[in-house]
Nucleic acid binder design. Structure first.
Length: 1086
RNA sequence: GGGCGGUUAGCUCAGCUGGUUAGAGCACACGCCUGAUAAGCGUGAGGUCCCGGGUUCGAGUCCCGGAUCGCCCA
């Protein structure tokens, strides 16, 4: 069949599905096994669907299809992710409001209106694409994250977390564009990096003698460091941001790193990382004498005097410098331990100003230190003499000040990359802003333990990427200072003392005192909702919710779940509750690997926090799609492969098949048109060829496929195929049950190959030249069953071709059969039909035939020439029996007159005696080389006799110790070796040796096959039908004349010639002439 | 800088708990078949299993170190 027909066929199948509502009917298919829960991870419809969406959607489609056939019900509710930054940025560009900090109410209204429209900019493309690729998902009843009902459910989830104290407000370090004080996203600063020169300063933080930790004191004393040195000791701290030094609250060292006390001629005794000594000597041009060694962890809680000690009191954070907590620990200004500290740059001691760094802030949380805000959020200094200056401009003055105070050790410059905001040209200010958090870190253990219950494919994600992420879990920052998102449902009283989380529209209505059912829950409308409670006016906080919370809420929000504080459904939402229960948790989800910290995490976090259980049981985590050369596909590189042209050219099935079988789903996949073409030609092409073969003859013969012969009454070749088919059903089922689409696909591929190149090839004649109707019916029945079963097994993979096969093979024969292959029940393997003996036997036959073909190719004698004999053998008795049993089959396949099966110890065979390594290795270990040597010396025929008799083989080893070993038959392997004078091939104990001797009779027979071919060729050129009869006339000389005399009748039979006369050729003529003679035929249609 | 994964034939990929001569498909070469035929099939050539150490009787496979590509995070 021509390749270009697949796309057309698919269009026809799509029309059929549409017209007959097959997808809707699959929803009604009886489901004795209950619900198989699938969640659609919502894509965004503002971009165009691309090839990686085909990948994800193929894997999302295959298992629901499979499970439906297996007797489950699968709800395939679609979903769209609609909020968030990509949409906002696109609309900002359109409206030209980029980087504007504050929009007024009208502007927000316009902005969110535009966002709402933009969200579905490409929805048409998505709808078409999804249907075209054969993904069945309900897009008409999809959940949409911007819908009021969805938002309300999200609020409800937040409320339940709020009630349990999981939601808090705390600081978070965000990148700000100072002056306009606008929070930027990572994407916005990614392009803004520039090479700049910044200060690189080393500052002495004098350590307080009385707070020296015990471990330090002991170590230093042991190394002979005196009191005088201890008194003047300072830790040397490095920073590239002097303007943050007034905000310093800790000095951090790496607990596992080596530190030293050195004597500096210019600055006295200093503590710094051992690794940094040489660098500092070089930099400051002085010799630093090492006087003692310490570990970073020895120094924890050691207090120091910061360069600007007045700041903490000035800001009112503490009452006095050196203030202690109730437990006696210092409030701030002490040495802390942090694994992120390195000594690659600087001194190996990091300055910590938690307001200005995410890691620093995290450390401050661990140590419970307060924050010192040396600048305001517009980047202006609010402390020291530099007060009022822009932060970057304060560096010089501060350095001078430290010099005056005698704490500056060294001031230099460093060239490095630092981000700037393109629009304002200002350097980015990382700044701690108040932010809303979910306290996920309190549930670290539960998150990790629930992960243990999830099956990850590939498995390494579980404890690798995902597990590590959970182990290091930090609180989930859920607030964003944006416009287009789910507004946070938090209302705060004017004085900030009271906070209320609203869990439903009804609750808000009650608080406000009017019905808000028609309120658009988005900004700016929700911002206007205020209410008075306890005499205070409450206003909503300005932020919106992280979009990952939106998508992680889909198990609940897609059903508009609303619960009260007891976990009971709110009045009127009982049905929603039941639907949710039926669909939680998911049996299966699938997305690409980038979702480990996205959707996979948000699903897992929400269900763990609220239900202490995983949200999904099985997850396939797909690798990314790259181009043919392994590069990322991107528009700028122009290497993007569009899906629709691929579908139009090769068909969606071909694309799907490649994506399923081309490589492991978790691996990065190279994609190119060539590979799709290969997939189409390989599996689909072969399957289709077998199918067309069947159809071609079945249309002529009209076999009765309703009443097929019992399997037991069919020839062995058919029973073999039946057995193989049952085995296939078993294997494919097992693979798919294990979410192994690729393994299942490979099984199908292998089977189709055997079906085509062994079964059909060996049995072709039974379909068109068969006087035995029973045998013919049996062949038709067997091939039909194989094709029908294949169409079912392939249905989840390649739904279109499978459907085409089903319609034509099954629906025509049995109109009462299921209307679509996708509505049929998955085949059950019949164990009783799996004849293991037959499978083993046929396996040996195929193997030996392969070797014989190789041998014949080597000999240079065409298959057409019959050869007198082939000698064959196989390593096991069972297989030898098979070879004997199928000797005729083998003779015909190889075109030899005699097949001689050689058993163990036969005259003609010699052997190679090999140790059975897996057995002997364990037993004898180091003796193996000696055993090998001894085996090589033996007379192999004698060994064969011994083993045939079932006796042990005794060996005398030529090791110094002279050990004797006794080897059992299982511990040895005999491999047949090619006999002399034959054209032979051997492998793994299988052997085929052709006797290459052509006598006169064989030559004439071989020539007769040349003549048959000649006439057949002529028939075709004349344009005859395969069943047309002809008359033949001929003239011949030499061997051809002899051959015709002898094999004329066979020629007639093969070419459907009613007559064969030696006469001047008439009609269509054809001729042949070579060293064997010449011949000329005339053909005419009878 | 950290985490995870990859590196096997010209290309895309297999290779289970270590075991004898490392496989498949495509492409290539040669050939076969001619009642699946603008198809089909077979055979062959092609490998430093990324590099270097180690463990072992034996390493593509296990361990250590390194290179390189990709993803995620800083």
């Amino acid at each position: 069949m021509s390749e270009t027909n697949f796309p057309k066929l698919e269009e026809a199948v799509l029309a059929f599905w549409r017209e007959r509502q097959i997808f809707a009917k699959s929803d009604q298919k009886p489901a004795p096994k209950g619900e198989f829960v699938f969640y659609e991870g919502p894509p965004t419809a503002n971009g165009k669907p691309a090839m990686h969406h085909v990948l994800a959607r193929s894997f999302k489609d295959i298992f629901p299809r499979y499970k439906t056939m297996r007797g489950f019900h699968v709800t395939r509710k679609g979903g769209w992710d609609t909020h968030g930054l990509p949409v906002e940025i696109a609309v900002e560009k359109k409206l030209g409001v980029l980087g504007r900090k504050t929009l007024n109410k009208e502007q927000i209204a316009e902005f969110t209106k535009q966002c709402r429209e933009w969200v579905f900019a490409n929805i048409e493309d998505w709808n078409y694409f999804t249907e075209r690729m054969g993904m069945w998902v309900d897009l008409e009843d999809a959940y949409i994250t911007y819908h009021n009902n969805y938002i309300e459910s999200v609020w409800n989830l937040l409320k339940r977390m709020w009630d349990r104290g999981m939601v808090v407000q705390d600081y978070k370090v965000v990148p700000l564009s100072p002056r306009i004080s606008t929070t930027l996203s990572q994407n916005e600063i990614a392009d803004g990096y520039r090479e700049v020169d910044d200060p690189s300063v080393y500052v002495r933080f004098p350590l307080k003698l009385e707070t020296t930790p015990l471990a330090v004191r002991e170590k230093l004393q042991a190394q002979g460091v005196g009191l005088e040195a201890l008194t003047n000791l300072a830790v040397l701290v490095w920073t590239t941001t002097p303007w943050t030094l007034p905000s310093n609250t800790m000095a951090a060292v790496n607990p596992d790193m080596d530190y030293v006390v050195v004597r500096s001629p210019s600055a006295g005794p200093l503590v710094l990382a051992a690794e940094a000594v040489a660098r500092l000597e070089d930099l400051h041009k002085e010799r630093l004498e090492v006087v003692a060694h310490l570990k970073g962890r020895d120094m924890e809680w050691w207090e120091y005097t910061p360069p600007f000690p007045e700041v903490c009191v000035e800001l009112g954070v503490v009452k006095a410098q050196g203030e202690k907590r109730p437990d006696g620990r210092p409030v701030m200004h002490f040495v802390a331990l942090a694994e992120f500290v390195s000594a690659e740059d600087g001194s190996g001691v990091a300055h910590e100003a938690p307001v200005y760094g995410a890691e620093d802030l995290e450390l401050a949380r661990q140590y419970g230190t307060p924050l010192l805000f040396g600048t305001n959020e517009y980047g202006l200094m609010v402390v020291t003499e530099e007060r009022g200056k822009f932060f970057k401009e304060a560096d010089k003055g501060l350095i001078r000040l430290m010099k005056e105070r005698g704490v500056l050790y060294h001031a230099g410059q460093i060239r490095h990359r630092y981000p700037f905001h393109d629009r304002t040209g200002d350097p980015i200010l990382y700044f701690a802003k108040p932010s809303w958090y979910i306290k996920t870190s309190l549930f670290r253990q539960a998150l990790y333990e629930n992960n243990e219950k999830i099956n990850w494919f590939p498995e390494h994600i579980k404890h690798g990427r995902f597990g590590n992420w959970l182990k290091d879990n930090v609180d989930w920052a859920i607030s964003r200072e944006r416009y287009w998102g789910t507004p946070l449902p938090f209302w705060v009283s004017e004085d900030g003392s009271e906070k209320i989380c609203v869990g439903s529209v009804r609750e808000l209505s009650e608080l406000v005192g009017r019905d808000l059912s028609d309120l658009d829950l988005h900004r700016p409308y929700v911002d206007e909702i205020t209410f008075v409670k306890n005499g205070k006016t409450f206003r909503r906080v300005p932020e919106v919710l992280d979009v990952w919370f939106d998508s992680g809420a889909m198990p609940y929000a897609q059903w508009h779940l609303l619960l009260d504080e007891k976990g009971e459904p709110l009045p009127g939402t009982e049905e929603n509750y039941r639907r949710w229960q039926r669909h939680f948790p998911a049996d299966y989800i699938c997305e690409a690997i980038d979702q480990t910290r996205g959707w996979f995490y948000s699903l897992h976090a929400i269900s763990t926090l609220l239900y202490d259980q995983p949200c999904f049981k099985n997850v396939i985590c797909l690798g990314h799609l790259v181009d043919e050369k392994g590069h990322k596909m991107s528009k700028s590189k122009g290497n993007v492969v569009e899906p629709l042209p691929m579908f139009d050219k090769y068909g969606a099935d071909a694309v799907r098949w490649y994506l399923f079988t081309g490589s492991e789903p978790g691996e990065q996949k190279r994609f190119s048109e060539r590979l799709v073409q290969e997939a189409q030609r390989g599996f689909l092409g072969t399957l289709w060829n077998v199918y067309s073969f069947f159809v071609l003859y079945a249309n002529l013969d009209r076999p009765d496929l309703q009443n097929r012969p019992a399997v037991a009454n069919r020839p062995e070749m058919d029973r073999w195929l039946v057995a193989r088919l049952q085995q296939l059903v078993e294997r494919v089922t097992a693979r798919l049950d294990a979410y192994d689409a690729r393994g299942a696909g490979k099984e199908l591929e292998q089977f189709v190959e055997e079906l085509s190149n062994w079964y059909v090839r060996r049995n072709r004649r039974r379909f068109w030249k068969n006087d035995d109707p029973t045998d013919r019916e049996s062949a038709y029945a067997t091939l039909w069953e194989a094709l029908v079963t294949l169409s079912q097994l392939a249905a989840p993979f390649t739904p279109f071709v499978a459907e085409a096969l089903w319609q034509n093979l099954v629906r025509r024969v049995r109109p009462e059969a299921p209307e679509s292959v996708h509505l049929s029940d998955w085949p059950e393997a019949e164990r009783a039909l799996v004849d293991e003996t037959l499978l083993v036997q046929m396996g040996a036959v195929v193997r030996v035939v392969g070797l014989a073909r190789s041998a014949r190719a080597m000999s240079g004698i065409k298959t057409r020439m019959p050869l007198p004999r082939v000698l064959i053998t196989a390593p096991t008795e069972a297989e030898l029996a098979g070879l004997r049993h199928f000797a005729d089959e083998i003779a015909e396949e190889l075109n030899v007159k005699e097949v001689q099966v050689l058993g163990l110890g036969e005259e003609l065979l010699s052997y190679r005696v090999l140790p059975n390594l897996p057995l002997l290795g364990k037993k004898y270990g180091k003796l193996l080389p000696a055993i090998r040597a001894a085996l090589a010396e033996l007379d192999s025929r004698m060994v064969a006799q011994t083993l045939k008799a079932g006796q042990n083989l005794n060996l005398e080893l030529s090791t110094p110790e002279g050990t004797r070993v006794s080897l059992s038959p299982e511990e040895l392997l005999l491999e047949a070796r090619s006999p002399e004078g034959y054209s032979a091939q051997e492998q793994d104990g299988y052997l085929a040796a052709l006797e290459v001797r052509l006598d006169e009779a064989l030559l004439l027979e071989g020539l007769s096959r040349d003549l048959i071919r000649l006439v057949q060729q002529a028939r075709k050129e004349m344009g005859l039908n395969v069943s047309d009869r002809i008359h033949l006339s001929y003239t011949a000389e030499g061997k051809y004349a002899e051959s015709l005399l002898r094999f004329g009748p066979r020629l007639q039979e093969e070419t459907l010639a009613l007559t064969l006369v030696q006469a001047e050729p008439e009609g269509f003529t054809t001729e042949l002439s070579d060293e064997e003679g010449r011949v000329r035929f005339g053909l005419s249609k009878a």
